[in-house]
Simulated scan of single mutants.
Amino acid sequence: MSLLSAVIVKTIGKRKLILGSLFATALCSLGLSIYARTSISPDVFSYESITFTEKKEILPLFLFMALVCFTSLGIPWILLSEVFPFRSRGVATGTAAAFCYTILFLASKTNYNLEATFHLSGVFAIYATFAFVGTIYLYFFLPETENKTLVEIESYYKGETKIFADDFFINAFRKKQSKLSEASKPMLVK
């Protein structure tokens, strides 16, 4: 999946790739939650193989795992070289990698207890919620860095310039904000 993201990042762009894959992960998680709620008995516990049903439907789970690997294992590494300033890029990238692996470790280790408490459908509903919230957050706060120089990206994070994504909703929001700021300015009398 990392190779696939590296191949298609030039055609799609980083921002659309991140948002699309995270939204697709949220949809797969929601689909798995609904499937588990409607088709899997509450006494099924995925850590005990004797509780599995006889059905061999693996497509939703395969899509979910592919998208999770695509989203969490490949895409963040594309942005790390652009996010941090040049002087601290090495240490910051290493710290971010360590934090990422810590979060992945905690997610893996808490899965057992979450499933024991909330059933399989609840676990995937929690994952879907995190993915939907993450998609919304990144939609509004992830700048478009495609075709931008490292100097432009660094000046954005310093607060000196604005890099907006070229999306319909964000552009409509920017126009509304500029109209509100113009209306709030005092009128000059000649």
Rank of each mutant, 00 (worst) to 15 (best):
K55D: 09
F23Y: 14
T11D: 03
I78M: 10
G13N: 14
I103P: 03
F173T: 05
F132C: 11
L114P: 00
A24K: 08
F45T: 05
K55G: 04
G20I: 10
L30R: 04
A6S: 11
T102W: 07
S184I: 02
A26E: 00
I58G: 01
F105H: 09
F70I: 12
G94K: 03
I75D: 08
S5G: 04
L22C: 08
T95F: 13
L80H: 09
L104G: 12
G74D: 06
S108Y: 05
T93V: 10
T25M: 14
F141H: 07
L17Q: 11
L142E: 03
Y157S: 05
C28W: 01
F23H: 11
V83W: 09
F141C: 04
S72H: 15
I153K: 01
F168C: 08
P76T: 03
L3V: 13
S88P: 00
K148W: 11
F124R: 03
I103M: 12
A26Y: 00
F62I: 15
L27N: 06
Y35P: 03
E144S: 12
S2F: 13
E57H: 11
R15W: 08
T161I: 15
F52G: 10
K158W: 08
N111F: 13
L73H: 13
S181P: 00
F23K: 11
L17H: 07
S155M: 14
F169P: 03
F105I: 06
S121G: 02
G74N: 02
G94S: 09
T71L: 11
F168E: 10
A36K: 04
K185M: 13
L67V: 01
D43N: 14
S181H: 05
S121W: 00
A183S: 14
I136R: 02
K176V: 09
D43H: 13
S21Y: 06
V133R: 02
T129N: 01
Y127G: 06
K148S: 13
F164C: 04
E82Y: 09
R174W: 01
F105T: 07
S155R: 15
K56L: 15
Y47Q: 07
G94C: 05
K175N: 14
P85N: 12
F105A: 08
F84V: 06
Y156S: 08
S41C: 00
T102M: 08
L32F: 07
R37V: 00
L120S: 08
A165I: 01
S5M: 12
T149N: 12
A165Y: 02
I40R: 02
G94E: 04
F164V: 07
A183P: 05
E146L: 14
I103G: 14
T149G: 13
A183I: 02
G74Q: 03
L188G: 06
L30C: 10
L106T: 01
L120D: 04
K190R: 10
F84Q: 07
A165V: 01
